[in-house]
């Protein structure tokens, strides 16, 4: 047993971290175009790890996938990343795979999935909607306004049937795991940002991070995140086993809670600046709330865990 990332996996995460640290993500979030960033992420292999090798991917590698999503969450990367992971599984069937999967792996195609709303449906190259066991292409409908300005959600209008007899379970489970990893990253990024702030912001003549009330908030956030992480990687290792759905749900419920707790503490410790849209961390604070119920609420996932035991 070696339940820690290997050197290559650590390198993959470090490469993404470096890429994203210098990518000007806050500017992208404030109205820039995320497609160049999408291409850079694809070049680094983010989408290839959700695509089988015969379609120019690296094979479906759940550990690498959650490693990537963790870094994307940490930097509040916008765009339908989780949806594209779901799509990579949904499209892995004839004749859709040949047409779409190489493009997904290379970053050439952005695919959104309605769940029930579709993220960035107007900018995606394809929008998918599950209709029972039918998989349909869908068109963007009315645009909705999310708390998280980086989540541009749309109602969809289902169109032509692309495939019949589709079990969406495996695709949605993998996407749910990707979302859990993203939440974990959101929480980790907020904790790092807040620890840095608490170490420099001074009141009463000393850094606010020297006060126990602040310390204890942050220690609790770390505890929540530290014990959500092994659930995410444990679920990644259960991919392809009968326990996968259960373990994904356990991870999602824990990550939702840990990530949201990190957001509440980040807001509280930053004080009024944390409540402003000009604060870069506010993208993550809002994302933590938006993702809390995305891909299934914690309560739905807890029920799924119990049902599987």
């Amino acid at each position: 047993m070696k339940f820690v990332l290997n050197a290559e996996q650590r390198m993959f995460g470090a490469t993404l971290r470096e890429l994203l640290s210098g990518a000007g993500v806050p500017d992208v979030l404030r109205g820039g175009d995320w497609r160049p960033l999408w291409s850079a992420l694809a070049d680094a292999g983010v989408f290839a790890v959700a695509v089988p090798e015969k379609y120019d991917g690296a094979g479906v590698l759940p550990v690498e996938l959650v490693t990537a999503l963790h870094e994307l969450g940490r930097h509040a990367v916008p765009g339908p990343v989780v949806e594209t992971v779901a799509a990579a599984v949904l499209l892995d069937r004839d004749p859709l795979a040949d047409a779409w999967l190489p493009r997904v792996a290379s970053g050439d195609a952005v695919v959104s999935v309605a769940r029930p709303y579709a993220l960035d449906a107007d900018r995606a190259d394809l929008v998918l909607a599950a209709d029972g066991t039918d998989l349909r292409a869908a068109a963007p409908g009315r645009e909705l306004t999310s708390l998280d300005p980086a989540r541009r959600l749309f109602e969809v209008v289902p169109g032509e049937v692309l495939a019949r007899g589709v079990d969406t379970g495996p695709a949605f489970d993998l996407a749910t795991l990707a979302c859990a990893a993203q939440q974990l990253g959101v929480g980790r990024g907020l904790l790092e940002r807040t620890v840095a702030y608490a170490g420099t912001r001074e009141q009463f003549g000393r850094p606010i991070g020297a006060f126990q009330a602040v310390k204890h908030h942050l220690a609790s956030v770390l505890t929540g995140l530290e014990f959500a992480r092994p659930l995410v990687y444990g679920a990644a290792l259960a991919h392809g086993t009968p326990d996968f759905a259960r373990d994904v749900s356990a991870a999602k419920a824990a990550c939702a809670r840990a990530s949201y707790a990190a957001a509440r503490v980040a807001l509280q410790v930053h004080g009024a600046i944390g409540y402003t849209e000009e604060f870069d961390g506010s993208f993550s604070i809002r994302k933590a709330r938006a993702l809390y119920n995305a891909w299934g609420s914690p309560s739905e996932h807890r029920a799924r865990v119990l049902a599987a035991l």
Binding site: L191, P207, G209, A210, V214, K215, H216, L218, S220, L222
Partner: peptide
């Protein structure tokens, strides 16, 4: 409470306080 002090100071690197 002592553990949270330890976590905050030695794991997160927050400043020592009274």
């Amino acid at each position: 409470e002592i553990q949270r002090d330890i976590v905050a100071e030695r794991v997160l690197g927050l400043p020592r306080g009274n």
